[in-house]
Computed example of a mutant assay.
Amino acid sequence: MGARADRTTAVFERELGTLARNRLYPLLAVGFAALIVAIALGSDVSGYVPLVATLLTPIELLVPVLVAAMGYRSILGDRERGELDVLRTYPATREEYVVGVFLGRLVAITATVVAPLLAVGVAVPVVGRAPTFLPQPSGLDSPVLYLRFVVLTGLFAAALLAVMTLLSALVADARRGLVLAVAVVVAATVGVDAVAVFGLATGVPLGWAALPALSPNGAYRGLVLALAVAPVSTPPARPAPAFLSALSLFCWTTIPLLVAALRVWPAPE
């Protein structure tokens, strides 16, 4: 067990070093933080829950783009440089390699996503004022609800990164990887929701309202509405059951990683 952990840690540290040497990622982090701060400060934030409501839609759009940019070459880059062939001769297994790569990228992406969210959350008592649209007392507008939102956003980013890790394990060249990354972003942000809206418009009783929970974005949105918004104010649309959204996000994180470990290189004979 200790040897497996050491090998995974070695891949993890190698991935962090790769990210540190790439000049694009700091620019992405700065750009993401600037957008989050601008959106928060430009919305006349009146409390923690209003801040969640303000940031939810931008986060659903920005995080998939950020994760795609930082994750679609995670394994593809090693394949293009011929490093996968070298790594196959090392004692590390396919699972240890994929987990190490995933965790290395996840640390960088989580820091990029969470840091600006925490920063604007800390600023709420300074620049905000007591909520006026909530029927409950303003004391219910707790920072704990905002922290739930931040944690759920980190889990959302992890699920998307797992999908990008799988994509990176499957493609053979950067052009195809970029095209598929864009397709995943579009499908995650608007695809499933569009199908659900179309289904609801047809009037066929097939449980279309729960369909968005089957996508990473829809599951994330449902959990945020259920755990960070509903305790204070009933959301305008009833989300899918929280357990369904949580199960969906869990599956989007674990299953792509399992498949990526099977496909990253052939199993030894």
Rank of each mutant, 00 (worst) to 15 (best):
E96W: 09
V86G: 03
V195Y: 07
S215N: 00
D85Q: 10
C251A: 15
V30M: 02
R73F: 14
A213H: 01
G121M: 01
W252N: 02
S233Y: 13
V184D: 02
P268W: 13
P231C: 12
Y48Q: 00
F12P: 00
P137R: 15
R176P: 11
A68N: 01
G177N: 03
Y146M: 04
G121W: 01
L161E: 10
Y220D: 01
V86P: 00
G47R: 02
L118P: 06
L27A: 15
A201Y: 14
L160W: 02
Y146E: 02
A53K: 12
R4L: 12
L66H: 02
T112L: 12
A3P: 06
V151E: 12
A69F: 03
V86F: 12
R94I: 13
A111M: 14
P212V: 05
W252D: 01
P231Y: 12
V127R: 06
V127A: 07
A196Q: 07
T93G: 03
A230D: 06
L28N: 08
D78R: 08
L84C: 00
V184S: 02
R88W: 09
P137L: 15
G71R: 03
P125C: 10
R238W: 15
A240I: 14
Y146P: 00
T189L: 00
T132Q: 12
A53T: 11
V11T: 03
L258N: 13
R88K: 09
E83W: 04
G207F: 09
R221V: 15
R175S: 12
L145P: 00
I109D: 01
A34R: 04
V195E: 02
S245M: 06
T234L: 12
V67P: 00
A53Q: 14
R175P: 05
L161G: 07
P131R: 05
G31A: 08
G207Q: 06
G2E: 05
R81V: 10
L262F: 13
R238D: 14
V151A: 10
V190R: 08
T54R: 09
F149V: 09
P131W: 04
D44T: 10
F102L: 05
L161R: 05
A261H: 04
V37F: 15
A34P: 04
P131S: 03
